[in-house]
Amino acid sequence: MKKNGVFSRAFMALVFLFLYAPIFVLVVFSFNAIKSRTTWGGFSLHWYVELFHNTRILEALRTTLTVSVLAAAIATVAGTAAAIGFYSMRRRPRGICLAVNNIPMTNADIITGVSLMLLFVLLGRQLGFKLGFGTLLIAHITFDIPYVILSVLPKLRQLDPNIYEAAQDLGATGLTAFRKVVLPEIMPGVWNGALIAFTMSIDDFVISYFTAGSKTSTLAMEIYAMTRRRISPQINALSTLLFVVVLALLVVINLRQSRQEQAARLRRATLRSPQKER
């Protein structure tokens, strides 16, 4: 195919400018000495210092990380199990299950949020609990699992069913065969699912907002509250830190993934005879 010319490159550069201009502004003004979003008053780390003394934000950060890690971990295990279950079903029930599984992904966040809120309020009144960390976690698990399933299911479909039987013929119990043969093959899908689940949880605001109650608050909810009251450049400092962390994480994951893909390709090449290679 033809390579891109000057105009095409310029167009792409413009799109990236559009995507990064606001982030750049956020980062620059996080080092502002005065409390203005638009006037530069000299370099300072003042807002970073204040940020680390803001217990509300630190508490919210902890809640966000806890709920995201827990929800992603639980969703990964439950979603992988469910994916194997779905994979084993006959066509019709599987179709129904997958359709229901798609609901949280295709529905607007606000609908998932308010519908869960109605359920939690109603159940809470019957069973005597209040909206809080528990309901927040349940909500996150609920919208995380579908992504794990959609990530694991294709890997199961690619799996050669004979290798599991081969392992059993060689004397492995069902569990050992699963652990030693099936799991390594579907692992990239599992990791990918875990990563998407974690991302979705970290990024979520709307569903958390409706399901966390008034006592628990995630980072996004705290930012929302701040933007409605008085806006402090602490938000800029916080976004800068988040941006750097995310950038670092993404680089590490990308490197890891390309190395894993290489290893997998190598392993497959040595395992299978050349004729069977697709």
């Binding site: 502004v25 956020l26 991302t199 938000i235 976004s239």
Partner: peptide, 27 residues
């Protein structure tokens, strides 16, 4: 990677960033 990167920053922060650009006395 560059396209996905902003997605990982909370979308409230990204939207908030536009406020300082678009305001009447904004950048």
């Amino acid at each position: 990677m560059l396209i996905m990167l902003p997605m990982w920053m909370n979308f409230l922060l990204r939207t908030y960033a536009w406020m300082s650009l678009l305001e009447d006395t904004g950048l």
